[in-house]
Write a protein that binds this DNA or RNA. Structure first.
Lengths: 211, 211
DNA sequence: TATAAAATACCTAAAAATCAGTAGAAAAAA
DNA sequence: TTTTTTCTACTGATTTTTAGGTATTTTATA
């Protein structure tokens, strides 16, 4: 644990949010706000020249978005801890920020306590979410709710091969089937997923995590 | 917080693991192991008849796999807290267990301390990972590492429409372009992603989270 | 063992996609 | 203001997919 205060940066395109966070963090004894930035580029430029221990990040930003920014920050400075503070409630966004290196995700209406708690958890190397975010993550997604088609073994197999970009002929050769049979399975898949072609099929299947 | 001990179930197809966990948890004052199960079906049957507060789950199971089992458990008993204890180190698997309702994911070589800590975090409603798992989550995935193609604005736009299952003609109509132009973009996309057709394209693009 | 579900295979014809190029205009970057 | 990139559009030939179906054989399941 560093004896110094945490050199903390705020990245948000709303000056009011920046000011508000500054006020809130003022009282934290182990935090020192070293800057507020309205977009990713100016922050990255700062990061190249200065040490930053902690950054509170918004997702919606002019130019580079917060998700991509996470990756770039980690690329520049692996030790900088990222907490995302956003209003986005889509699970995919939350997941991706974490995959891109963030140590936590809070909604902007989180309490100061939650923020404080997440900072301390993140410092310990943990990943931390605010309560509402945990609800979002745990709640089944729309894609999963909408009845997913029941696939047979063969269909799953052929679906996987289609996803690899193989033609009916390729697949037929591989599975020792007639290409016409493969066509039939392909047709049934397209029907089951209620899509128009293989492109839509692959898309629907990945969304339902069948690939 | 319940004054009773946590009614805890273990689901793993290795009897040795079950026994080991029983031994470890024996000393925990707030935990009472109510059963060990070798597969998902027998556990679900038990869950229908008995209250279970906590379940430690393996991913690799005969029959229903652990990821799907998470959903079924939550479906049956929303209050049952699920911790996954597995050897799988693929990020997609970790992510999906969480999306399916698990409150934490630990590798089997985790320390008892970590397990104890995760249990208490999970009880508080938090999501908790063991150290190695956090590393896996934060580490950029293979898919993301391998040079992702640089797409132009038009290409991204057409890629998205292709993913919806639209034909070149559809897209051309929508964007007021010649279908031949759309064909060119499509061709360039296929080249950039080094795939053979649109199916492979959609697959590659989703893997690199471009869709 | 009936019965249902899955897997196999075929037909015809139209629609769409892919390959392998070229090339001018517009926009963005140096 | 060059230079480069992106966007646009085309030719022509070939391959593949898609949309209607039908129909027999296996394999599970009741």
């Amino acid at each position: 644990m560093p004896t110094d205060k945490l050199r903390t940066a705020l990245v948000d395109d709303h000056p009011i949010v920046i000011e508000g966070l500054k006020m809130l963090l003022q009282n934290e004894e182990n935090v020192k706000v070293v800057g507020g930035f309205g977009n990713g580029d100016t922050f990255l430029a700062y990061l190249k020249q200065n040490r930053v221990d902690l950054v509170l990040l918004d997702i919606t930003l002019p130019g580079i978005n917060g998700m991509d920014l996470c990756k770039m920050i980690k690329n520049e400075s692996l030790t900088t801890i990222i907490l995302v503070l956003s209003n986005h409630t889509e699970r995919s966004i939350i997941m991706q920020t974490i995959q891109n290196g963030a140590s936590g995700y809070l909604l902007k209406n989180s309490s100061v306590d939650e923020l404080r708690n997440c900072i301390s958890e993140a410092l310990k190397g943990n990943i931390c979410f605010s309560k509402e975010v945990i609800d979002i993550i745990s709640r089944p997604s729309k894609n999963q709710l909408q009845g997913r088609p029941q696939l047979t073994r063969r269909e799953k197999q052929i679906l996987a091969l289609l996803a690899e970009g193989k033609t009916s002929q390729n697949i037929a050769d591989e599975l020792f089937l007639s290409p016409l049979t493969v066509d039939t399975h392909r047709k049934n898949l397209i029907q089951k997923f209620e899509v128009k072609n293989v492109a839509g099929l692959i898309m629907a299947a990945t969304q339902q995590q069948l690939l």
